[in-house]
Nucleic acid binder design. Structure first.
Length: 500
RNA sequence: GGCCCUAUCGUCUAGCGGUCUAGGACGUGGCCCUUUCAAGGCCAAAACACGGGUUCGAGUCCCGUUAGGGUCACCA
């Protein structure tokens, strides 16, 4: 289904730090939309605020997007027909068009100093007036202007917003939105340092880069009338706008932000940056699926789907206009789903990193054998460390004797149990040291010892793994091997004996 | 406070006038399985904010109220 106008969307973050989780969702939606319509997705860097510029941010940003599997057709790293894709390298363009607006009476130079503006705001506050620029320099006489110029004053270029009438836009998500022009501000388009503000830069770039659809967070909705008027002032064809619902804190109070860190139901801090999720062991597949499900719905009552499937049916008509709270439990659940569904070899590959980061030397053969018994037990990749890290520990860390002793047992009965198990296990050939054989050999001991499976297996499990919460007993023994299993059981016997 | 947006289970959502005694998912509770922890299976509790209209008929359309959110910079 060929579209009449080629779809071109963009993600235009400002490089002020690592990518915000909400930013990733915005990127994802733009990307999904472009891919669905067989169009292009562009990455553009909006570094027009010199005060907030972070030189490492671009790299981090790219890293996060790549991690999530978002790819772009044009961007600062790969160039493209409308390069450069970094706004600080396009300054002359913005200045040129700002001048054009001034020359055509659509904008004007404003010479107030920061202090003067501060004064004005204070006055407004005292008089309990609505804050905003008073348009003092909107109609300066040529003489006044010349005087300020002669003074050598710096100036900003402000947009001359229409003073009456209304601005109505049909937003793809929000529907028809109408604003009174009279309450709008004469916003700054070009700052005194020669850099453009977002308002000016995005309109010029979206025009020049032939962007067809602007999908951005609903936080931008209040400045939409300004943008619409800017498009009209330039006489350019406006792209479609789609304002995405804002992602709110898990409790629904306020949007997710770095200041004011969100918390989950138990009071744990919820990370806001994509890198935090990367480091916490979340899978990009799960993260993408999760984020795509907030504010958009796959349909058919399906919640688990790949990005390839999402691309097939992604469109703006299923985007919800209502804001939504960030559901952290759902992310954990989804991540678990993806871990369980993953091929063992692939999962092993991904488990390696967190294991090594925890200081373990990873034996790949062992890891491959461990994967099947951990995959249903972990929610994040990092969970493997606490659940199965012991398989890779250089020297075994035995559990405390109290932990080896099971419910309704004492040191004496535990020692008796461990010794009985050692006797049985010692008689099994190394080649037969596999789960089922071990189970069949050991289980009958419950009869002779008069204890339950739970007591028997529990004692052995804690003795052999060193953990009260761990992978299952016999599976773990098989991986650990006969010699080491026996050694650990004897060590545990000694440990508990000391309690007699 | 002004302006704008939104309003279905605790949460993410389905629902686009009759098929809604409102569906799915997460979470929660219970049961089963069980060797810890999970996973898995089964079951349960849980919502159309309120008030007016429109209509034969409203969760679905309109208005108001209330509530929540966003935004009011030479930041994006």
């Amino acid at each position: 289904m060929p579209d009449s106008i080629p779809v071109r969307t963009r993600f235009a973050p400002s490089p002020t730090g690592s990518l915000h989780i909400g930013g990733l969702r915005t990127a994802l939606f733009n990307w999904l939309f472009a891919r669905h319509h067989h169009g292009q997705f562009i990455l553009r860097i909006e570094d027009t605020d010199q005060k907030r510029y972070d030189p490492n941010a671009l790299q981090t940003l790219i890293e996060a997007l790549r991690w999530a599997g978002v790819d772009w057709d044009e961007g600062p790293d790969i160039g493209g027909p409308f390069a450069p894709y970094v706004q600080s390298e396009r300054l002359d363009l913005y200045q040129q068009w700002a001048n054009w607006l001034v020359e055509h009476g659509k904008a004007y130079r404003s010479y107030e100093t920061a202090e003067e503006l501060e004064q004005m705001r204070k006055g407004q506050e005292q008089r309990k007036e609505q804050p905003g620029y008073n348009r003092a320099h909107r109609s300066l006489t040529p003489e006044q202007r010349a005087a300020y110029e002669a003074e050598g004053r710096a100036y900003v270029v402000r947009f001359a917003m229409p003073l009456e009438g209304q601005t109505t836009v049909r937003d793809l998500v929000q529907g028809e939105v109408t604003f009174d022009n009279a309450v709008q501000q004469d916003m700054v388009l070009l700052k005194s340092d020669g850099f453009p503000t977002y308002h000016l830069a995005h309109v010029i770039d979206d025009h020049l880069m032939e962007i067809s659809h602007v999908m951005r967070a609903a936080e931008w909705l209040p400045s939409l009338p300004l943008h619409v008027q800017l498009w009209q002032a330039f006489g350019w064809k406006m792209p479609e706008y789609a304002h995405l619902p804002v992602m709110l804190n898990p409790n629904g109070k306020g949007k997710m932000s770095k200041r004011n860190p969100p918390k989950d139901a138990r009071g744990n801090v919820i990370p806001v940056l994509v890198h935090d999720y990367m480091n916490a062991g979340y899978l990009p597949e799960a993260m993408d699926n999760f984020l795509t499900n907030i504010g958009w719905n796959f349909g058919d009552e399906r919640e688990v789907f790949s990005m390839a499937e999402a691309i097939e049916r992604f469109d703006t008509d299923r985007i919800n206009a209502a804001n939504s709270a960030f559901p952290p439990e759902k992310l954990d659940w989804l991540n678990g789903v993806y871990i369980r569904d993953m091929d063992d070899v692939e999962l092993a590959r991904r488990l390696r990193q967190p294991l090594e980061a925890a200081g373990f030397e990873v034996n790949v053969d062992t890891l491959l054998r461990v994967v099947p018994i951990v995959k249903t037990r972990i929610k994040t990749l990092n969970d493997v460390v606490s659940m199965a890290g012991f398989f890779f520990r250089e020297t075994f860390l035995p559990a405390a004797p109290e932990q080896i002793i099971q419910k309704k047992m004492d040191a004496a009965s535990t020692v008796q149990t461990l010794q009985a198990a050692v006797a049985v296990l010692a008689g099994i050939d190394e080649a037969d040291f596999v789960t089922q054989t071990l189970y069949d050999a050991v289980q009958p001991l419950t009869e002779t010892l008069g204890i339950s499976n739970g007591q028997l297996f529990g004692a052995l499990r804690v003795a052999v793994t060193g953990q009260t919460v761990s992978t299952p007993t016999f599976e773990s023994m098989e991986i650990i091997g006969k010699d080491e299993t026996l050694r650990r059981l004897k060590q545990a016997t000694a440990l508990v004996s000391a309690k007699l």
